[in-house]
Amino acid sequence: MLTETDLAALWITLKLAGLTTLILILLGTPLAWWLARTRFRGKVVVEAVVALPLVLPPTVLGFYLLLALGPNGPIGRLMEALGGHALAFTFAGLVVGSVLYSLPFVVQPLQDAFSTVGRRPLEVAATLRASPLDRFLTVAVPLARPGFLTAAVLGFAHTVGEFGVVLMIGGSIPGETRVLSIAIYEHVEALEYGRAHMLAGGLLVLSFLMLLAVYGWNRRFRLVRP
């Protein structure tokens, strides 16, 4: 069965993915809403920046994060000035990296969902006395529900599958920054194929089940009717 260190890696991975997804839903929802609704011309710039992690090698992102979060980086210095310590090689640093790395996987499905909802239902809600926040919460969010589910699952799964960024800014501190993908890599390095199989196979099944759930659910909850 799983060893204690592998279990710790599993726990760190789930904690990281869960926290990242939560933060991304909270930050990504207003961002996606703005992107879906704005007529501001500069929005393409924001869209391109959001999509960057899709094309950038994770090591590039990790490298710059390492510089920024490290003791000599701007964020690292700020943290130390505030009485904290640099975020590189900490769990908090991993969360920051994961949020950036998985950003497009959350923002894009949400933006698509909000675009599909369109303006009409919100206008209808406005004529039925709902304030802007009220109609966002009672009309836009429920109608975009399939988008939220897709965003959450993709954000979670993508964070679980993260490797390059973690390697760059997290290292492999057991119980702190050693996640499953790193653990698998190390098992293979040490020629412990049996233990690598256990983790790799588990991840494979988990990822498949999560995607199956998304597609299954989105069939049941079709977006707005024609």
């Binding site: 206008e123 209808v124 809600a125 406005a126 004529t127 006395r129 802007p132 429920p142 109608l143 009717r225």
Partner: peptide
Amino acid sequence: VPPHQRPLGYVFQEASLFSH
């Protein structure tokens, strides 16, 4: 006065019922 503070009823060309 924003739309939600105007005491009016509006029926759109297509019924636009909330599907949720």
